[in-house]
Design a binder for these strands. Sequence first.
RNA 1: GCACCCGUAGUUCAACGGAUAGAACGGAGGCCUCCGGAGCCUCAGGUAGAGGUUCGAUUCCUCUCGGGUGCACCA
Length: 583
Amino acid sequence: MLFPSLIQERLAQALLRSGLDIPASFEPSVTAAQDTRFGDYQSNAAMVLAKQLRCNPRETASAIASAFEGGDLCDAPEIAGPGFLNFRLRPAAFSAALAAILTDSRQGVPQASPPRRIVVDFSAPNVAKPMHVGHIRSTIIGDCLARTARFLGHEVTTDNHIGDWGTQFGMILHGWKTLLDAEALEADPVAELLRIYKEINTLCKEDETVRDQCRAELVALQAGDPENLKIWKTCVDLSIAGLGKLYDRLDVSFDHWLGESHYNDRLAPLVEDLIARSVARESEGAICIFFTEHPALAEKPCLIRKADGGFLYATTDLATIDFRIEQWQAEEIWYVVGAPQQLHFQQIFESVRLAAAAGRGPATPPALRHIAHGSILGADRKLMKTRSGDNVQLADVLDEAITRARAVVEEKNPDLPAAEKDEIASIIGIGAVKFAELSQHRMTDYIFSWEKMLALQGDTAPYLQYSSVRIQSIFRKLEGPAPDWTALDPTSFTFQDESETRLLRLLARFAEVVPSVLDDHRPNLLAGYLLELAGAFHAFFAACPVLKAEVSARTSRLALCAATNKVLQTGLGLLGIRVPKRM
RNA sequence: GCACCCGUAGUUCAACGGAUAGAACGGAGGCCUCCGGAGCCUCAGGUAGAGGUUCGAUUCCUCUCGGGUGCACCA
């Protein structure tokens, strides 16, 4: 049940009846009122129209209002301020929405129509180096967007485009051959790979000959040297196993792990084809795509083949797009990648456009979107460099989060079985880390802080989880089965307290909020909504007894509790956050 | 040099061009022997600056100041 759409339909009909000269393209917008004093929903249609028609906005509003027929949804809107149309829904409409949340498997969230085939490219760490905190943003935002798109009915393919090929393997190969400690590798492969990477990295900076040796190893690898290929494969397998453990802890999964190496065979023919189509040309020995008619990119060509014949990651990205079109018929590709790579994606997207114009690929290439996010900065306000390898490890962050959560569980609930405490601590700790990320605008840069990332109080996941846990606790105490909501007549609901109606209003908005996440790819809209919902729930819960209420109010309040719990669990699920039974 | 991102309470963050700019943390003060106090209720406190677009600007445009980032053979 989507109130803005329902109101919008009636508003559109009112416009036709109003006698106003409505432009054909005009669509009235209806949004939730920001302040309940103004009603439940509002529209600025009269003001927008008045501007176009050059007439008085309040008179326009009045004409629309008197032509408006709300049926059993609401009465005619009130006119307020400069010409707002304010709608107040009938209590029965909210009761119906509540019933829908309780009985509908989608909590009233509409199915996307038409569904799109979307490839979500996120996380994409380089192998042979463990993930540090900087990787958390793409991983968690991407996972949330993929979950949300799926929930809305889109056909989603997630692909972890890992960095499993390229220059860094020259260093790793050289390090493997000269520095490897077999025992250490056995004990903790990822740590040992990191160690040799860091050591070689340092040596390279100091010593020219080491750098040359690394380069030679890389050339050998790319030329197909069997020994190097074998070592490379071993490294990749070990890294993937290590990454897998981390993703398991994060409850993040991918449909595919098609890394850069997967596209090696496509690179040379791709470049040849682009040359043949005059999309790319030689310049200073390299093969480049120039964007002459694009002012911002006029002096920023995209290199797709080096003078030495080697390929670059732009080449791989272009080949990857081909693959995703051929294999998955992608209609959209979302790249959840940090903002510093904006130029790169501009170049890639523009290259695809040029190639398509030159007859390469399908007539309508997929919509390509760079879903950029800000950076996590070190204490010095500088970027955490992916390459330096000495940043805070993601695994350490998760460990610490769980340790802290475990301590709180111990304090609050000492009598729980140890295994359950561990389980709860994991759910709470990981949830806190994820929510810290998802609750802020994705473009915001922030300085890494244990305190911020691991907070358990205030606007955090544990606050939301706690809300759900309290509701679950009520239903455990209920003694006897919960009401059968499908058999209940929604008109029997009664709500008097202001905290009840506020909660009800928010519950009904879930159906609006979930789709809005994908409008601009912003999980923080959902996170913010859930905080607001939980806040409204706690206020209600503090003000209104549920189990001890008299019978008529009791069922209605139980319904609010059940619906709140459903929305919290579904919403947190879309954020990739689980909810314990107790905490 | 060209391009992109960001400047909001003491702090960390919100706010499809909408009405009196919201939270949280920190600070001050409260919460009945009642469903779990990871909670609830008060109070204090803010849009970097200057123009412009408009009925209306934190939001869009221009400039200034201040912070960050990216730009030819790494990924």
